[in-house]
Simulated scan of single mutants.
Amino acid sequence: MVHLRIVAPHAECRHVVELLTGSDSAFNIVHLENVATKPDGDLVLCDVARADVSLVVADLRELDVDVDGSIAIEEIDSEISALSSNAFRRRRDDFATDPVVWENVSSRTSENVELSQSYIVFMVASMLIAAVGIYFNQPILIVGAMVVGPDFGPIAGICVALVNRSERLARRSAAALFYGFLIGTLATCAMTILLREIDQIPSTIDFDSHTLVRFISNPDIFSVYVALIAGVVGMLSLTTAKSSALVGVLISVATVPAASNIGVAAAYADWSTARGATIQLGLNLASIMAAGLVTLLLQRRIYMRRRRAHLSDRARTTAGLPIGRSRRADVDPDEEPAAE
Rank of each mutant, 00 (worst) to 15 (best):
R168H: 11
A26Q: 06
P39V: 07
E340M: 10
S244Q: 10
A241W: 03
Y225M: 13
I6G: 04
R92Y: 05
E18D: 07
H210E: 03
N261C: 09
S25Y: 00
A8Q: 00
E18K: 06
A125C: 07
I158A: 10
C13E: 15
G22N: 12
A72P: 07
R14W: 14
T109V: 12
R50D: 10
S70R: 13
L195P: 04
L311W: 03
S272L: 05
V331C: 07
V253L: 02
S173Y: 03
S23A: 15
M1N: 00
M1L: 10
S78H: 09
E167P: 00
V16R: 01
S252K: 06
G234M: 00
R305Y: 04
S110D: 07
V44D: 03
L298C: 06
G282V: 15
A245M: 10
S209E: 09
C13L: 08
E167H: 12
Q117K: 14
V232H: 02
D206S: 06
A51Q: 08
V256G: 09
M191I: 14
G282K: 11
I71S: 08
V100L: 04
S78M: 09
V105R: 01
P150E: 06
R308S: 14
L250A: 02
N104W: 05
S106A: 11
I155Y: 00
D220H: 13
R50G: 10
G184N: 10
E197Y: 03
A125V: 05
A8P: 00
S326Y: 08
V143S: 04
S217I: 00
L162H: 08
N28E: 08
A266L: 13
A8V: 05
V232Q: 01
A290Y: 02
Q200V: 09
I279N: 05
Q299W: 15
I6D: 05
A266Q: 04
E336V: 13
N34A: 11
A259E: 01
E62R: 15
A338R: 08
E33S: 11
H310T: 05
L45G: 00
N284G: 15
E111F: 14
V224R: 01
I129N: 03
A175R: 12
S244Y: 15
D77W: 15
A175K: 13
V17I: 07
S166T: 11
V2G: 01
V224Q: 02
G144F: 02
L236V: 12
D40E: 13
F215E: 06
P154L: 00
S106R: 10
T239I: 05
A259G: 06
V16S: 02
L128S: 05
I76Q: 08
D47P: 02
P257R: 02
E114L: 08
F207S: 00
G234K: 00
D24P: 12
D68I: 11
S209V: 07
F88V: 11
P154R: 00
E111P: 12
R108D: 12
G320E: 03
V143E: 01
T97W: 14
L293K: 09
Q138C: 02
L162R: 05
Y119P: 07
E75S: 12
V30G: 02
Y225Q: 12
